[in-house]
Design a protein around this nucleic acid. Structure first.
Length: 253
DNA sequence: GTTGAGCGTT
């Protein structure tokens, strides 16, 4: 990940989180480390990335060990030009587990209580967020807004099509496909539905699924495939079934 | 290869 070599969040109990905004999309934690490390002890730096594309979102989280150092870094690095971009450094308001944070300091809800319920819930919390995004995507996220921009024109068009609930269902797949679909449909109307004239009807989506299964477990899949027909075919006498007899062709293929 | 308001991961 975007850590210093360690996986997962380290001890966030006695650390002060700083939110770094307005950084370039190619700025990594290593690039920010020297800047923040100069003003204090940096525990960890994390840069959220997009799950689908894997690109940086444009902001990072820097955790300091002491508040005074974090405060100094905020005042010093806030407005600093990094990688040609003016970054914005401020204390994080929201924690990873939705914990209460005061001046970047994480205030544990139950410091003395050792209940395991809230701990597990926190993990499901962040996972639920991702699932909701990919599955539903009912609300416009930052990414979607970036694509369409803040133009109100888009909203107007969206409302026109909002009459068809199917439209939203179709766009659930992805915004990119949505654009292509919408364009295709528009052309279809002008062209008097050329899809009907298409001589090639819909084929079963088997090819894609079979490929996925093979990728899941290639070794076992190949072995199981040849197992069911060892004695079914004659050892020799059927050249057509040479796939199980001719190793020089079938296996290599 | 692009975009720029915001708040985070094993």
């Amino acid at each position: 990940m975007s850590h210093f070599g360690r996986t997962g969040p380290p001890d966030i109990a006695d650390t002060y989180s700083l939110l770094v905004l307005n950084i370039t999309f190619r700025t990594t934690a290593d690039d920010l480390f020297p800047y923040f490390d100069k003003y204090g002890k940096v525990v960890d730096i994390f840069i959220p990335r997009n799950r689908r594309t894997g690109d940086s979102r444009g902001f990072a989280f820097v955790r300091y060990k002491y508040a005074d150092e974090a405060q100094k870094a905020v005042e010093r690095l806030d407005g600093k030009v990094v990688d040609g971009r003016e970054i914005t450094v401020q204390f994080a308001k929201y924690g990873p587990n939705a914990e209460r944070i005061h001046k970047g300091r994480i205030i544990e809800s139950l410091p003395k209580s050792r209940s395991r319920s809230p701990q597990r819930r926190s993990r499901d919390d962040y996972r639920d967020r991702d699932y909701r995004r990919r599955s539903r995507s009912r609300s416009f996220d930052r990414y979607d807004r970036d694509r369409y921009g803040k133009d109100r024109d888009y909203r107007r068009r969206s409302r026109s099509r909002s009459a068809s609930p199917d439209y939203y269902r179709a766009r659930g797949r992805g915004r990119y496909d949505d654009e292509r679909q919408s364009r295709s449909r528009s052309r279809s109307i002008d062209s008097a539905s050329p899809a009907r004239h298409s001589p090639s009807p819909r084929k079963s989506p088997s090819p894609r699924r079979s490929r996925s299964l093979r990728d899941e477990s290639p070794g076992r899949r190949s072995r199981d495939r040849r197992s069911p027909t060892p004695r079914s075919v004659s050892p020799r006498g059927r050249p057509a079934d040479s796939r199980s007899q001719s190793p020089r062709k079938s296996d290599d293929e």
